Every structure is written in structure tokens, then in C-alpha cells.
Simulated scan of single mutants.
Amino acid sequence: MPGLTAWAGITQLANVGEGDTVLVNAAAGPVGGTVGQIARIKGAERVVGIAGGAEKCAIVTDTYGFDACIDYKIDGWEAELKKALPDGLSIFFENVSADMAITALDNARTYARGVLCGLAAGYQVQSQDRVPNPLPMGTIIGKRAQLFGLVVYDFYSKWDEFAGEAGKWIQDGKLAFAEDREEGLENAPALFERLMNGQNRGKAVVTVSPEKA
């Protein structure tokens, strides 16, 4: 499903193509990492990621092949992002929050397209009193930006089309993936905790031996 999510958002909604500059956050995760790679395969000129920590940024550049990855945990990361997008972005893929979407819009070209996929920053919020920042309507209008809400279930009918393309890309070495894997169900809670705390390194997977299933 993460692969279909990435494929649908970047090809069916954002319609990535030649010359695009793409920004994606949570870029070390299975959706974000796949978004950047598919964008490149489909002709994007530049792909930039945002992730938390040097280790995750290394996955983004070394495994997924992004041009750059900005560590949002360091001071002055917004300035570093601007340096990584000297001509602005034409597509952004939002996995984290309204705040991050605003940052993307601040770096957007006129007629940029944005895919709103997830709100990871709010998944662990305990209080319902916290209201996310609204998207800046003036900026959206001024930049003539198009924003698309993405729900992957809308694209299940295209599963075979996605699998056909992705399977060939994997065989050809064009599409890579990283997994944070544990052996045995007894280790699943710890892996799930890492996932919920943003400490996983790639797609969280638990392997269960047949004799233990």
C-alpha cells in the first residue's frame, strides 16, 4: 500500500514530468522514499527530501538517490532548504503537517502542485485542543497552487498498473527500498513503538516463521 500511495499521488494527482522539482517530507519512510524515486523515473529534474536526523537523511540520499536531504532537527534547516531549492519547487508531497506544507508553499513556484497525504506530526497528539495551523489562503491563491487530497483507496482499481510498473523498476534496479525488520511477533511491540515515535529506518516489517505462525 505505501508504494501504491506514492505512485498514485505523484503520477495520478501531481502528474510529475520532465523538468519538475519535487520536495517530499518524511522522505526516509516507505511512502516518501518511493515518491522521490518515482518522480525521478518519470522525469523530475531535481528531488529533495526532508527527514529527521543524519541517519535518515543518509537513507534518503544513499539508498533512495535523492539529490539532497534536509535534516529538520538542525538549527537553520529552513535556510538550508531554500539553498537546496534555488529555483523553487513545482511539486510537494506532504506527509507531516500543515506547518510543513506552509514551508513547502513558501518555496513553491507559481502553479506548483501539492499532494496532501498525511499528518504524521498529529498522530500522537494527546490533546484535542491543539489545532493545526491553517494553510495560508493568500499564498495558495497568489502562487496559483493546486492542492490534492490523497486517499489511497481511491486508486485500488489501478493496483495492477502500479504493480506492473513498480515490479519492472525493482528488477531494473531503479526502485530501492529500506526495511526496519524484526524477527518474531514478540518483537512487534518494540518495532511498533519505534514506528510511532519516528525512530524506524524504512518500512517496518515483522517476519514470522511458518512454524510459529
Rank of each mutant, 00 (worst) to 15 (best):
W7D: 00
A8S: 10
Q12F: 12
Q12L: 13
L13W: 04
N15D: 06
V16K: 01
N25S: 14
V35T: 02
Q37E: 05
A39S: 12
I41F: 10
K42P: 12
G43R: 04
A44V: 06
I50P: 14
G52H: 10
K56P: 03
K56T: 03
I59M: 06
G65N: 02
D67Q: 02
A68C: 01
A68V: 00
D71P: 01
I74A: 05
D75E: 13
G76I: 02
W77G: 00
I91T: 07
E94H: 14
M100K: 01
L105I: 10
R109T: 06
T110V: 06
G114F: 09
Q126W: 08
S127A: 07
S127R: 00
D129P: 02
V131K: 05
V131G: 06
N133W: 10
M137Q: 04
G138F: 03
G138K: 06
I141M: 07
G142V: 03
G142Y: 11
A145D: 06
A145G: 08
G149I: 01
G149M: 08
Y156P: 05
Y156A: 08
D160M: 12
D160V: 12
L175K: 01
L175Y: 00
A178L: 04
E179F: 08
D180A: 13
R181F: 10
E186A: 15
A190G: 15
G198H: 09
V205R: 02
T207W: 14
P210S: 05
